[in-house]
């Protein structure tokens, strides 16, 4: 447990408001190392319930790395070491008592490239509930699959071909299938790592609309390359540069009057 007394009492160079009133995830002084190389330097930030927050910044700035720390996806990389504290509902997620399986069931993830399993659409969505034992009957499973596909806006397009392979869908549909797969296990938070970077503008628009919808029920952390996208969908925006969190704040403020020079340079297109 991270005690309440010191969570808002943290030294940080970050400009703007890193705290939120109703924090779901609290990160304090997070450092990430790949072997000798430090990829994330002293990042502290809160992520609130049911908010959509975007991480922006030039490529290689560490925003994806930081995102992957939040559900411990970095565990799969041998050389990766995480220091500092990240807590979900005030419980340290890097604590030995926490099982990464339960953590990832709570914090879903959607990846840059749509990655449906080479199985049927139905099996793709049903996979999570099946492994976690979330349904006790076929009807319940059907219901979860249907509901998740409805929530991801894919139901009308695929309801007649649930048994056809998920890899046969178009890119945008595949990505929505991946979102359906993530929400089928009823997570609290969904991490999205540049979910639209492999998609065309029309598919991107659909996903953005979907994210806006989902924001009502889930906390969503989205890493994006597109500032317009961040501006369109997120309530808060965090700007990363060279592994450091430079500035955080309401999206409107960040984009209209950034306080930091680097942020301003990036927003106005001088750092790419």
């Amino acid at each position: 447990m991270v005690s309440n007394s010191n969570i808002n009492n943290v030294k940080t160079k970050t400009i703007g408001e890193i705290f939120s009133k109703d924090p779901k995830i609290i990160c304090r002084n997070v450092d990430v190392f790949y072997g000798e190389k430090q990829a994330i330097k002293d990042v502290s930030i809160d992520i609130a319930s049911r908010e959509i927050i975007s991480f922006i910044g030039p490529s290689g700035c560490g925003k994806s790395t930081f995102l992957r720390c939040l559900n411990r996806m970095n565990d799969t990389i041998d050389t990766c070491k995480v220091k500092g504290s990240i807590s979900l509902d005030k419980e340290d997620i890097y604590d030995e008592k926490i099982d990464v399986v339960t953590l990832r069931a709570k914090i879903g993830m959607v990846f840059q490239k749509p990655n449906p399993f080479p199985k049927s659409i139905y099996e793709n969505v049903a996979y999570g509930p099946k492994i976690h034992g979330l349904s006790s009957s076929k009807e319940e499973l059907d219901f979860i699959v249907e509901n998740s596909l409805k929530d991801s806006g894919l139901w009308e397009e695929v309801k007649d071909r649930l048994q056809s392979p998920g890899t046969g869908l178009s890119g945008g549909q595949q990505q929505r299938l991946c979102i359906a797969r993530a929400i089928a296990v009823s997570p609290e938070i969904i991490l999205m790592d540049e979910p639209c970077s492999a998609l065309d503008p029309i598919a991107t628009a659909k996903i953005e609309e979907l994210i806006n919808q989902l924001g009502k029920n889930y906390s969503i952390v989205i890493v994006t390359h597109s500032m317009q996208q961040a501006a369109r969908i997120s309530q808060r925006t965090a700007y990363f540069h060279l592994g450091e969190l430079i500035e955080v704040g309401e999206t409107k403020k960040i984009f209209t009057m950034p306080k930091d020079k680097q942020t301003e340079a990036y927003i106005s297109g001088r750092i790419g």
């Binding site: 099982d99 399986v101 339960t102 069931a105 709570k106 492994i131 976690h132 034992g133 979330l134 319940e140 219901f143 979860i144 509901n147 929530d151 296990v185 009823s186 997570p187 609290e188 919808q213 009502k216 029920n217």
Partner: peptide, 27 residues
């Protein structure tokens, strides 16, 4: 959204079920 969620699990319910299955799955 989720108008018909009488059977859709909430996040809390889900995470409880997950937690209860973890020991078996780890084994």
């Amino acid at each position: 959204m989720n108008k018909n969620n009488s059977k859709m699990l909430t996040a809390d319910e889900a995470s409880k079920i997950v937690a209860s299955s973890v020991i078996r799955r780890r084994k």
